[in-house]
Design a protein around this nucleic acid. Structure first.
Length: 806
RNA sequence: GCCCGGGUGGCGGAAUUGGUAGACGCGAGGGGCUUAAACCCCCUUGAGCCCUGACGGGCUCGCGUGGGUUCGAAUCCCACCCCGGGCACCA
């Protein structure tokens, strides 16, 4: 019988599903393993990135199951979002229909890959039974002061016609479509993630099994800066706050700068001789996209006509407006110290402002602003102090004067969650003329997303055009009121879905806290590196909120994070738009899911990007053919007792068990696969000699057990055909016998002065002295020594002897 | 500019963490099977050179570049070059 992958794969997929072997139930008597692949956005069909992800995930699910863990491996759909909506607009099909069709296609392909999930816990974020708990969670955050609505300058994507979170703006452009982002002043909903900045930063230390680079990216994103905040008076009334990390340089302040959006600006310029010029500058700054503002390079600004008083020396310094100061960071105002800050230096040089150095640069310094350490100069009572001491001293002085204090500033800003788009979870709030902002009562949840005809973006949510949706009555005063028409960022959904898996069918509550208390935290989370900041930071934040609410037993959701590399083709990322995707469906038919899985495991280090080689899968398919042949061929077994050949192949099999186990544990799948190939090659050689039945069966059993998590279909089929059992998935993972695994012999490499000059086969338990003797006894080595003095002999039995002569 | 990764055959990549560089696979070349091809099987495959009639065997170089440490370096240290990623007017 030949290897008919289609029949075998279909048969076992059906069998696993009907047996329900991956349905998980909490069981405190067993060690649990909660294993999640980041739930996919249902784009239409699986791409090789998904295949890679789910192959790794399923390998672990099966491996850990065989090791006796109670494994939970669920699957769901990140089904709300702009992609679905834009696709729907393009094709003229309602996003729900499109999305649900895509889910069906992808679910079926995931099953064809042989990936096993607990489908009883399947969830989709566009399903009202899921998003009602988004709404519930929103209201909880609102009640805790963690959700608020405010007018603020926000990032606006002119193409997608919606606002974006800071995290979704990449190099001044929309992360999704690349359109340059502009600033708008809009009333929007925010989650107060900044309240958790310190905890989010501190707890990164506890994430031992996260990739270092992801942790670094999160640290940079949170961007903690220590410094001081203090009050500066405007000559003639008013005052403003500034933040600085270098209060020690305060004597060098020769001007101040306010961001164009700073609230004090209008009154400052009101009756100034520069008013017209200033207004024009502010208007231009407002119009300019983020990209244009950055691209200018040259610092620009305008004098307000007003002066500020430096609190340490009463010096009068000019106040400027300049867009290199950002309203969103610190206080939107700075003390400018050109001597110690290159940006201030550039500005001062351009506008002819005085520069005073307050830190002594090193001898021979020819640079411009000096930002390094040094002794404080030209600074009154700070003179002669080193930086740290000067900072302490001036901060204490500011506190004594009652005008300032030490403070910590974060780069992280609050999470903007409103979206002016249709395909998302409606924000459950109502605007009442009498009562103001009113929550939708819990019993009225979910606020259903209505079916509409026209979901084209028009600069406001398409829901705003749906009277039946908008018009409602106020839950408090029963008067006429209007619903919020913005929807939530889909990253809200993905911030807690892994809790919901633990109790996915609960109609009474977001989940029963007892359920995730067993499963959480995730023992393994696998996904793309592109989520290093956005999703993983938001999910950590919401988990901490749930912890504070008493709903989560853990403060950190993801114990081990694995970020896989991308699949590339001819140097480019595979993507629909580039038209270079390799569709798994064709490969299921031509090579089979097992060959595809094995190729993904074999390709290269899982963390690295991997280049797709169209011929690579031929190799893994050939390997499976050989496995098939080994298992199904008829042999004439010899009657003799176990000889050398038997010992060798058994020893290799046990060493392979050890190697594969260790490699899976450290995520080195690309070296586990070759170990199996070597075993098969040697096994074939053994079988072409005079094999014994016992040895054959022992080695074959081990081979199939090791293949079970990687290529489950063929492994199950052969396991059953050989009569070893009818459900390999629940067999115990093999252990290796250290005695059998021991190498009998080794190659002793003999070097003279570090160069390999001879090799001798030796027994593996050779001693140092024996190795030494053998080395010096070798004719070849003697001819290399050639009468020279032997100075040292370094022996590392059984592998190496180095003879040092000269 | 700053912070991470990474440079090994024609290609993807191994190398027990300082001890035989190139496992395994792809590709390529040669041979077998076949009327022929595909499949499959066997051999060769880092570069240069040498010995031998042949079977075989040997030498030198070689892990981005240059230096260093060491009996011994792809692996550790210093400097530089290149590629990829992240952050970036953050006060």
């Amino acid at each position: 019988m030949s290897y008919d992958h289609k029949a075998i794969e279909a048969r076992w997929q059906k069998h696993w599903a009907t047996e329900g072997i991956f349905r998980a139930e909490a069981d405190p008597s067993r060690p649990k393993f909660y294993n999640v692949c980041m739930y996919p956005y249902p784009s239409g069909a699986l791409h090789q990135g998904h295949v890679r992800n789910y192959t790794y995930g399923d390998l672990l699910t099966r491996y850990k199951t065989m090791q006796g863990f109670n494994v939970l491996s669920p699957m769901g759909w990140d089904s709300f979002g702009l992609n679905a909506e834009n696709a729907a607009i393009k094709d003229g099909i309602h996003p729900r229909i499109n999305t649900e069709n895509n889910i069906d296609t992808m679910r079926s392909q995931i099953q064809q890959l042989g990936s096993m999930y607990d489908w009883d816990r399947e969830l989709a974020s566009h399903d009202p039974s899921f998003y009602r708990w988004d709404q519930w969670l929103f209201l909880e955050l609102y009640q805790r002061g963690l959700a608020y609505k405010t007018a603020a300058p926000v990032n606006w994507c002119p193409k997608d016609q919606t606002v974006l979170a800071n995290e979704q703006v990449v190099e001044g452009a929309c992360e999704r479509c690349g359109t340059p982002v502009v600033h708008k002043n809009l009333a929007q909903w925010f989650f107060k993630i900044t309240d958790y900045a310190d905890r989010l930063l501190d707890d990164i230390e506890t994430l031992e099994h996260w990739p270092e680079r992801v942790k670094t990216m999160q640290r940079n994103w949170i961007g903690r800066s220590e410094g001081a905040r203090f009050d500066i008076e405007v000559d003639g009334g008013d005052s403003f706050d500034v933040f600085t990390t270098r209060p020690d340089t305060i004597f060098g302040m020769t001007f101040c700068v306010l961001a164009p959006e700073h609230p004090l600006v209008p009154s400052l310029i009101a009756d100034s001789e520069n008013e017209a010029e200033a207004r024009e500058y502010i208007a231009a700054a407002n119009r300019a996209s983020e990209l244009e503002r950055m691209a200018e390079g040259d610092k620009t600004g305008v004098f307000t006509g007003k002066y500020a008083i430096n609190p340490v020396n009463e010096r009068r310094v000019p106040i400027y407006i300049a867009d290199y100061v950002l309203m969103g960071y610190g206080t939107g105002a700075i003390m400018a110290v050109p001597g110690q800050d290159q940006r201030d230096w550039d500005f001062a040089t351009k506008y002819g402002i005085e520069i005073i150095r307050t830190v002594q640069p090193p001898a021979g310094w020819e640079g411009e602003a000096y930002v390094g350490d040094g002794t404080t100069i030209h600074s009154g009572f700070l003179d002669g102090l080193e930086r740290a001491e000067a900072i302490t001293r001036i901060t204490r002085w500011l506190e004594e004067q009652g005008i300032g204090e030490a403070t910590i500033q974060y780069r992280l800003r609050d999470w903007l969650i409103s979206r002016q788009r249709y395909w998302g979870c409606p924000i459950p709030m109502i605007n009442c003329d009498n009562c103001g902002l009113v929550q939708v009562p819990e019993e009225d949840l979910p606020v259903l997303l209505p079916d509409i005809e026209d979901y084209l973006p028009k600069g406001r949510s398409p829901l705003a055009a749906v009277d039946e949706f908008v018009n409602t009555t106020c839950p408090e005063c029963d008067g006429p009121a209007q619903r919020e028409t913005d929807t939530m960022d889909t990253f809200v959904d993905s911030s807690w879905y892994f809790f919901r898996y633990a109790d996915a069918r609960n109609d009474e509550a977001i989940f029963d806290p007892e359920k995730p208390a067993y499963w959480m935290p995730l023992d393994q989370y696998i996904g793309g590196i592109e989520h290093a900041i956005l999703h993983l930071l938001y999910a950590r934040f919401i988990t901490k909120v749930l912890y504070d609410m008493g709903l989560s037993s853990v403060e950190e959701p993801f114990m081990r994070l694995f970020t896989q590399g991308m699949i590339t083709l001819e140097g480019a990322k595979m993507s629909k738009s580039k038209g270079n995707v390799v569709d798994p469906a064709g490969l299921f038919a031509s090579h089979g899911a097992d060959a595809l899985r094995l190729y993904h495991l074999f390709m290269g280090p899982p963390t690295d990007d991997a280049a797709w080689n169209p011929n690579g899968i031929d190799g893994t398919r050939r390997f499976l053919e050989r496995v098939w042949k080994i298992a199904t061929e008829d042999y004439e077994f010899a009657d003799h007792g176990a000889d050398n050949a038997d010992q060798e192949i058994l020893g290799l099999a046990h060493r392979t068990v050890r190697k594969v186990t260790e490699d899976i544990d450290r995520f080195h799948f690309n070296t586990a696969v070759p170990a199996l190939m070597v075993l098969c090659n040697e096994f074939s050689d053994y079988l072409s000699g005079s094999p014994r039945r016992e040895t054959y069966e022992d080695v074959l059993r081990l081979l199939l057990l090791l293949l079970a998590p990687m290529t489950p279909h063929i492994a199950h089929e052969l396991w059953e055909q050989k009569g070893y059992g009818n459900m390999l998935a629940t067999e115990a993972w093999p252990t290796w016998d250290p005695e059998l695994a021991k190498e009998e012999s080794a190659t002793l490499v003999i070097q003279v002065n570090g160069k390999v000059r001879d090799r001798i086969e030796v027994s593996a338990d050779i001693t140092s002295d024996q190795a030494r003797e053998l080395a010096l006894g070798s004719d070849k080595i003697q001819s290399w020594i050639d009468g020279q003095e032997v100075k040292r002999v370094i022996a590392r039995p059984p592998n190496l002897v180095n003879v040092v002569v000269g």
